[in-house]
Design a protein around this nucleic acid. Structure first.
Length: 943
DNA sequence: AATTCGGCTTA
DNA sequence: GTAAGCCGAATTG
């Protein structure tokens, strides 16, 4: 039979938007900092359609100038749409040139929307005997569906669904597709700002359509309705008809359907290659060449569904062929619906080893390797509290093994012991994703992990710190492979989530070994990327050794005095109660003080404390600290509220929360450091966060008294870098006067004040010093006069003058800052003293606000990041010294420029100089680093 | 039950 | 103005 001719019409903007937002959580940024999400998303859709459907006729339709007609009848049409995001605007020229290079016809008609063009062409093609597929996510198109016109709709999560008449009938509850217009007219569409009938949503619209068939039918029978609905519909008949008009796709666009203009032909591969290379679309290029290479031998037959002929080779769990070579499996090239390869489309040989013999054979193989990826599966997320369920190993693409552990913990320990030669081997490199977690889990069984480490999460963090580093995302990005989702395995968290223990062994094997397999493959990619970013040294010399240091610190934990906090909580409760009563009395009513939504109206509507209250972005009255604090001196109630807030914050976040974090096994608090979160290279701390324990206020700093030494043989020792960030900026800018001040050991803020206010050092007032201090810090963050005046008592113009004088005083500092911005513009990134990079994609943005933020980052990131580099070096060196000496004293916490130790009393005088020396000499600069050490019975005393 | 907002803690 | 994490309240599914 002669295949029916098929025409595919793509709704360009709808697909571009969809592509862009599909990547919104992980935008694709290339090495020049250009956001290619929209281009990639659209091009993927295009190639996907071609590959699946092999259309003989195809075109892409664009809007230009919007719909003249619709705006005439309803000026608010599409007014709800926010401005097109910049990455999309910038993507359009690229997409146009890709289409040109692929020789794909583009249809544009000034003053008409793509909807109308696609509608008109579909109808014309239908008359010529074509089947037309409208490729768009936009449900409005359903009104055009007929026997020969279909919607071809991308599904979320990948794949497409074809909507014919039957599907439209089902989805919209209509008999004829044209009624979709009435349906949309009734319920409206917030995206296009079609008003619809007030009070009519999806449910009511369907009911009306079933009863009256159309908008006109409904309006002619309003007398049959009752109550409020009757009134509303009768009053808005005109709006209803207008909405229907807006929802109607026009079929009268002056555009012709000449078959030969729409024929598919081979792309200009050279031109496409050039564009893809520029955009760094490596895989897409492969995909494209394959797509078109196949099109000859595999000419499309109408309506042939190209299903994925996945090679469903089940993994072998039997024992006999445990170490047999994999059979001649031949996974087809078919991709899954989202365009990613999956476990179903890929040859793999994942085996379960759960007998003594199979484990012995596995161990023998392991010990012959130079590098092995391993991944632990556990009963939960808290590494120090979970039990081991299994360990996966892989050292070759597509292959791997899974060792399962029973619930009985002594048996588990025994089985794990079998693998001690592997984990303790110093010659076998251990590869993993977030190895700190695995190291901690194994530490529960006293199993150390020795040898070189390679952590893919951290590798990618260095390659692009602003992105996220989930294995799933990395796999999709670098391997074009979508791993089995943990959610499929154990369900969403909360209600009925399973433990890994409850998952059938076969599935555990598939899931766990796949992770190890992928991680091993990622390593190969990242080695190259680290190399090309000159990040290999930072990776191997700093971040990787730090993994072990942080593991040890987290395992060590810190001692907390919960009884002390209990007393503190009681004392706070008394004050909170007192303040609450006072506040209610002054307000004349009781309300929730902790609810800004309730507090705002009381202060500003009822008590009218201020004429024109500041609002938040959501339109509520702002009751933020900076707003209230200057009302506090005139209004006791505001002062009381601020005090109340402070105490509540202390109580809920620290005093009451911290004791709950004590690990019952160790009786200590074990924070978790995130080594791949902060974009500048800093660590962050969570569960609990021990990097934001209060210190500024008298009441708050009491919390620090609850952090105590291990026992009576120890004291807490705190070592702080003094002004490390200012020293770094002085050294990097080579600002002589500032460097000299540090070399002289001067009070840097007083020294700055003396210079900018032009007074002798000894005559600097407290206020001058304080303002100088604020500017000094402001410089690090990228000051503005506005920001400075907010932080000081100075006016905007005084602030500006101060900043100007500051720059005159320190001209090289100013030059340094400009140079950083220029470097970022040129290279797309800035870097720290150890070459840690941060990419600033917005540095050349046309939006001044966005660009300004990127410029401040260009100044701040190298400063903050270099300080982070330096303390990391110090931590590694101190840890190594402590290990070599076998000290009982242990490093416990890092708070950005401070390290906290449990110091054994016998070792105190030995470790003090070691810590000071290692911290001060971790990195050599022209400016000396200075470290202050304090010792005490608690963290507060140690300062 | 999960996410977002406003507010607040640290370096 | 930089970098984080966590709380209660409110909103959303």
């Amino acid at each position: 039979m002669a295949a029916q001719k098929r025409l595919f019409l793509l709704d360009a903007y709808a697909l571009i938007f969809r592509g862009y937002y599909a990547f919104i959580k992980n935008p694709r940024i290339n090495s020049k900092g250009f956001d290619t999400s929209a281009i990639l998303g659209f091009t993927n859709s295009l190639l996907d359609v071609i590959k699946r459907e092999r259309p003989d006729h195809l075109a892409v339709c664009f809007d230009r100038g919007g719909s003249v007609d619709r705006v005439e009848v309803f000026p608010e049409y599409k007014a709800n749409r926010q401005e097109t995001p910049e990455p999309i605007t910038l993507a359009i020229p690229y997409i146009e040139s890709i289409l040109k290079a692929m020789k794909i016809p583009v249809i544009v008609k000034e003053g008409y929307e793509a909807d109308d063009i696609i509608g008109t062409l579909s109808k014309k093609a239908e008359k010529e005997g074509y089947q037309t597929f409208m490729v768009t996510p936009d449900k409005d198109f359903a009104q055009l569906v007929s026997e020969n016109i279909f919607m071809y709709r991308p599904k979320f999560g990948g794949g497409y669904e074809t909507w014919g008449i039957t599907e439209v009938q089902e989805k919209f509850g209509v008999e004829r597709p044209e009624q979709v217009i009435d349906f949309l007219g009734m319920m409206g569409d917030s995206v296009d700002n079609i008003p619809g009938l007030p009070g009519v949503g999806e449910k009511t619209a369907k009911k009306f359509l079933a009863a009256y068939g159309s908008m006109e039918g409904l309006l002619a029978h309003t007398h049959e309705l009752k109550g409020k609905m009757k009134e509303k519909v009768e009053a808005n008949g005109e709006l209803g008809m207008l909405s229907k008009q807006l929802a109607t796709i026009m079929l009268d666009v002056p555009v012709e359907f000449n078959e030969e203009d729409f024929e598919m032909c081979d792309p200009d591969l050279e031109a496409v290659t050039e564009i893809f290379n520029e955009l760094e679309f490596r895989r897409l290029l492969d995909n494209l060449t394959k797509t078109f290479a196949k099109s000859d031998e595999n000419s499309a037959e109408a309506n042939t569904k190209t299903t994925s002929k996945a090679n469903q080779k089940a993994s072998t769990t039997g024992q006999f062929d445990l170490f047999a070579t994999p059979g001649g499996g031949n996974a087809t090239e078919a991709t899954n619906i989202s365009g990613y390869q999956t476990i179903k489309t890929t040859d793999h040989f994942y085996q379960l080893a759960n007998t003594p013999l199979s484990r012995k054979m596995l161990l023998q193989k392991l010990l012959k390797q130079q590098s092995v990826c391993f991944d632990t599966e556990t009963t939960g997320l808290k590494a120090l509290e979970v039990e081991l369920v299994g360990i996966a190993f892989s050292w070759e693409k597509g292959k791997g093994y899974y060792v399962a552990f029973p619930e009985d913990q002594s048996e588990t320990t025994a089985i794990l012991e079998e693998f001690r030669p592997f984990f303790e081997s110093t010659t076998i490199e251990k590869v993993g994703q977030n190895l700190k977690y695995d190291i901690k889990v194994l530490s529960n069984y006293d199993m150390p992990v020795k040898g070189q480490l390679f952590d893919t999460m951290i590798a990618h963090y260095l390659i692009n710190p602003d992105m996220r580093h989930n294995m799933d995302v990395l796999s999709e990005t670098y391997l074009n492979y979508q791993p089995v989702s943990i959610v499929e395995l154990i369900g969403k968290k909360g209600k009925n989530q399973l433990s890994m223990r409850q998952v059938p062994l076969e599935q555990q094997t598939e899931y766990a070994v796949e992770d190890a397999d992928i991680t091993y493959q990622l390593k190969e990619h990242f080695i190259k990327e680290l190399e090309s970013g000159h990040l290999t040294k930072l990776f191997s010399d700093v971040e990787v050794p730090l993994v072990s240091v942080l593991s040890a610190m987290e395992i060590e934990g810190i001692n907390l005095d919960p009884d002390f906090l209990g007393e503190l909580s009681k004392a706070l409760a008394v004050d909170i109660d007192r303040l609450e009563k006072d506040i209610y009395e002054q307000a004349g009513e009781e309300f929730n003080i902790g609810s800004p939504k309730q507090l705002g109206p009381i202060l500003f509507d009822k008590l009218k404390l201020v004429d024109k209250p500041k609002k938040t972005k959501t339109g509520q009255y702002s009751t933020a600290e900076d707003v209230l604090s200057y009302l506090a001196k005139d209004h006791q109630i505001v002062a009381d509220i601020l005090e109340w807030r402070q105490y509540r914050k202390l109580q809920s976040t620290y005093v009451d929360a911290l004791p709950n974090e004590i690990n019952p096994k160790t009786n200590r608090i074990h924070t978790v450091y995130a080594q791949a979160v902060a974009a500048t290279g800093r660590l962050s701390s969570n569960n609990p966060n021990l990097q934001n324990i209060p210190i500024r206020t008298e009441r708050g700093r009491q919390v620090r008294k609850a952090f105590v030494p291990r026992d009576e043989n120890y004291v807490l020792l705190a070592a702080d870098y003094s002004q490390i960030e200012l020293r770094i900026i002085a050294a990097l800018s080579k600002e002589d006067t500032m460097m000299q001040a540090f070399k002289d050991g001067a009070d840097i803020h007083a020294s700055t004040a003396s210079r900018v206010f032009n007074v002798p050092l000894e005559e600097v007032t407290r206020e001058q010093r304080s303002n100088a201090k604020t500017v000094n810090f402001g410089i690090i963050y990228g000051v503005s006069a506005f920001g400075l005046s907010n932080q000081t008592d100075l006016t905007r113009s005084e602030s500006k003058e101060l900043i100007d004088t500051y720059y005159e005083t320190y001209p090289k500092l100013k030059a340094y800052m400009s140079n950083q911005v220029a470097f970022a513009r040129e290279n797309g990134y800035v870097e720290t003293v150890l070459g840690r990079r941060r990419y600033l994609k917005d540095i050349n943005s046309r939006n001044a606000i966005v660009r300004g933020a990127a410029e401040r980052n260009a100044v701040n990131a190298p400063i903050q990041g270099s300080a982070a580099d330096i303390i990391k070096l110090a931590m590694i060196n101190i840890y190594n010294r402590f290990e070599e000496e076998g000290f009982k004293s242990k490093m416990l916490l890092q708070v950005h420029d401070e390290l906290v130790f449990d110091a054994h009393k016998d070792e105190l005088e030995i470790i003090k100089p070691i810590i000071k020396e290692e911290m001060e000499n971790a990195f050599k600069m022209e400016v000396p680093l200075d470290v202050e050490i304090g010792v005490g019975q608690n963290w507060l005393e140690a300062h």
